[in-house]
Design a binder for these strands. Structure first.
Length: 713
DNA sequence: GACCTGCTGCGGAGTG
């Protein structure tokens, strides 16, 4: 039987009314399987290939909504995505008379109250709203979500390998526990590495044996053009902006300049160029520090512009599936930090069926060009970096312990540790470890033992009862920027923020007229000229494979026709620089340059291995400075022989890690800043957290074992 | 130089 005939009549009517000529391959496959089995499924296919329908058409055909209670729970990483999907799912559900309810921090309270009065249909929710319900209204979890047939997780790759993902995994396990029957899960994803046969994905859904992957790898025609304009970190080269302007003049285009300050620089300067020659003025910026309403307007403008051109300069805020309609082209300024990110960005253009995507890759320095070219080559090989899973998420455990205790009105130690040991998100954490952490939380008054039961302690109340409790991630404090009551965005307090200073924000130029340190507000007025704003952040980690490919490019003699003349020349220069080494293998051989009074070592490996290596070298008394963008170590040795005699003892077995890590935490506690909840752990567990999340000792060990220094000739 | 993500409950004012 064809997939279409397996669907219920109302759903078939919906499809006929949409005038779809056929079902997409991923939909065909998903319908056949979801209707016939109770397996969990992960649907992998590119953006705008009908994944949402691939999940909902069969689920809506199969589920009996006449029964009491909510039957389908859809979980999304973004509010904006919930709002988009709500419109689509509601239209579909109108054919079945099934109600759909949005449940997130900005959703209507009235609609939530109506659902509580009559729990039914489909609910769209964020992990944090689900967490809030577990903590504050645990009875509502039972009341609303104990009759689930299906859980749908959108954009699951955005959760994979992150603390937020482990959090969600834990919530799903807790949700399953209150359900009368086992619910099935359907997860949707655009980009996931298959290096470990999707083991991380299958684990995530809790039941690997019952979890199947359906993948549609329909390669999309895509052309790339590289353009090299050497420039400074401070400002983009004018020639680059002029070249980019020509791209934006008569197209709908997204530009990804990697950093918020640069996003503003691009938007403001392109708009100025356009104004000068009388071009369109639809230049926008879109990133986390642009006011939410302004961002929504930009998304709305892009979606409704069928004939009007526009240019949105943006960060990863426009990487995920928010519907902004069709875009003709994507421009990337300097290298992406991952292939996964490149795939998402490329997927933003030519979304219309049969239309090919175009990609413009600009680079402003040689190393960035090299990284960009490596990402492009790997992209063409369909490579995606594997996600790194934290097998010992002690910090998420702290958070979930507090959540469980708060959600119960007193819980015994055995019941509490049983909740954790039965939760697959914490399967690699032993009962003894859990009990030790509970004891520590009690010692620091986060928990309190009352008779046989644990409740939230005095210090614990302070964190559990704030709205900041529901997330696993930190949020920095920013000053809100507005002009005469109109909200524009927000900025971090930096030396740059002074009265009379002129800055870019939301693609416009402003003069700061007043700063209110008390209420954290900045008042501005329109101005004619200024500077890009400064934000502070961490650079994302680069995968070892990207760095290896960069070395492979340097060792090769191939002429890449995707590079422009300046790019060809830049690659020639870099190859010349590295031609003094007789490199034979990009996997093991690494250049060691001895010149003046220092040695330079190019490791060409991932950020976490570099970080670990730098740490180990320092522990063993080898002073070094790491330049991550070049994957380069400067070593304080003038003679290679001196260095080698010390280096031969560099071995992971020669370092007492527990001691070294504890000392690191004591001397520089800021290394733990990546973990919001890790600060409440005993020091020995914090050391473990560093070991598994911040460093990569296993990877570094393999790197050292294979390492073959090659000296310049 | 360096990404992103989300948010309860309650009180009080304003609106239909």
């Amino acid at each position: 039987m064809t997939a279409f005939n397996l669907l219920s009549e109302p759903i078939r009517k919906y499809i006929r009314d949409q005038k779809w000529e056929s079902l997409r391959p991923i939909q065909e496959a998903a319908i056949q399987r979801i209707i016939a089995t109770d397996n969990n499924y992960v649907l992998i296919s590119r953006t705008a290939s009908g994944k949402t329908e691939a999940a909902f058409l069969p689920i809506l055909s199969k589920v009996n909504f006449k029964e009491q209670g909510v039957k389908v729970l859809y979980i999304s990483p973004l509010i904006a995505l919930i709002n988009d999907q709500f419109t689509r799912v509601e239209k579909l559900c109108a054919y079945l008379d099934v109600p759909v309810t949005k449940w997130h921090g900005e959703a209507s309270k009235g609609a939530k109250d109506r659902l509580i009065k009559a729990p039914e249909g489909i609910v769209l929710i964020t992990p944090e709203s689900l967490e809030a319900m577990f903590v504050n209204k645990p009875y509502n979890i039972h009341h609303l979500f104990s009759t689930l047939d299906y859980v749908v997780i959108d954009e699951i790759h955005s959760f994979l390998g992150s603390d937020r993902g482990i959090h969600l995994q834990s919530l799903l396990q807790r949700l399953q526990k209150v359900n009368k029957n086992t619910f099935s899960t359907v997860a949707l994803s655009a980009t996931v590495s298959d290096e470990h046969k999707y083991a991380e994905l299958k684990d995530f859904l809790g039941d690997p044996a019952k979890t199947k992957v359906i993948r549609d790898i329909d390669p999309k025609p895509i052309t790339a053009v590289f353009k090299y304009f050497e420039g400074s970190v401070e400002e983009l080269p004018l020639d680059l902006l002029k070249d980019l302007y020509i791209r934006t003049r008569d197209r709908k285009i997204l530009v990804f300049p990697n950093a918020r300050g640069r996003v503003e620089e691009v938007a403001v300067k392109l708009k100025k160029l356009s104004e000068k020659v009388g071009g369109h003025t639809n230049y926008f910026s879109h990133h986390s520090s642009v006011d939410k309403e302004v961002r929504e307007y930009v998304e709305f403008f892009a979606k409704k512009s069928t004939h009007e051109n526009f240019c949105i300069s943006c960060t990863s805020t426009l990487e995920l599936g928010i519907d902004i309609g069709n875009v003709d082209e994507v421009a990337q300024i300097d290298a992406t930090h991952s292939i996964a990110s490149l795939i998402q960005r490329v997927g933003r253009s030519g979304r219309r069926e049969g239309k090919s995507s175009s990609l413009f890759l600009y680079a402003t320095n040689q190393w960035s060009l090299l990284q960009s070219a490596a990402c492009w080559l790997l992209f063409k090989e369909h490579y995606i970096e594997p996600v790194s899973i934290n097998s010992k998420p002690y910090d998420v455990l702290v958070h979930q312990l507090l959540s469980i205790v708060k959600g119960s009105s007193g819980i015994t130690l055995s019941k509490l540790s049983e909740e954790i040991s039965g939760n697959a998100a914490f399967k690699n954490i032993t009962v003894e470890e859990t009990i030790e952490i509970i004891a520590h939380l009690t010692a620091i008054d986060f928990l309190e033992k009352l008779g046989q039961e644990y409740i939230i302690g005095i210090e614990g109340e302070k964190v559990v009862n704030t709205k900041d409790f529901y997330t696993l991630f930190h949020t920095p404090v920013f000053f809100r920027v507005s002009s005469q009551g109109v909200k524009i965005g927000e900025l971090p307090l930096s030396p740059q923020i002074r009265t009379d200073e002129n800055i870019y924000l939301s693609a416009r130029i402003w003069k700061i007229t007043d700063i209110d340190y008390e209420s954290k507000k900045i008042e501005v007025m329109a101005a004619k000229d200024g500077n890009k704003p400064r934000f502070f952040g961490d650079a994302a980690d680069i995968a070892p494979k990207i760095r290896e490919t960069m070395l492979e490019i340097l060792m090769s003699v191939e002429q890449y026709d995707f590079l422009d003349e300046a790019g060809q020349e830049a690659v020639r220069q870099m190859r010349k620089k590295f031609s003094v080494y007789d490199l034979k293998s990009h996997q093991t051989d690494r250049p060691l340059f001895s010149g003046n009074d220092k040695l330079t070592f190019y490791s060409f490996t991932g950020s976490r291995v570099n970080r670990t290596l730098s740490f180990i070298l320092k522990r063993m008394g080898i002073k070094n400075e790491l330049f991550e963008n070049e994957s380069e170590f400067e070593l304080e040795f003038s003679q290679k022989s001196d260095f080698m005699s010390v280096f031969k003892d560099v071995n992971l077995n020669n370092v007492n890690f527990d001691h070294a890590l504890a000392e690191l935490i004591e001397t520089s506690p800021e290394v733990l800043s990546f973990s919001k909840w890790g600060i409440y752990l005993p020091v020995s567990f914090q050391a473990q957290l560093l070991r598994h999340r911040y460093f990569d000792f296993e990877g570094c060990n393999v790197f050292l074992q294979n390492l073959n220094f090659v000296e310049n000739q």
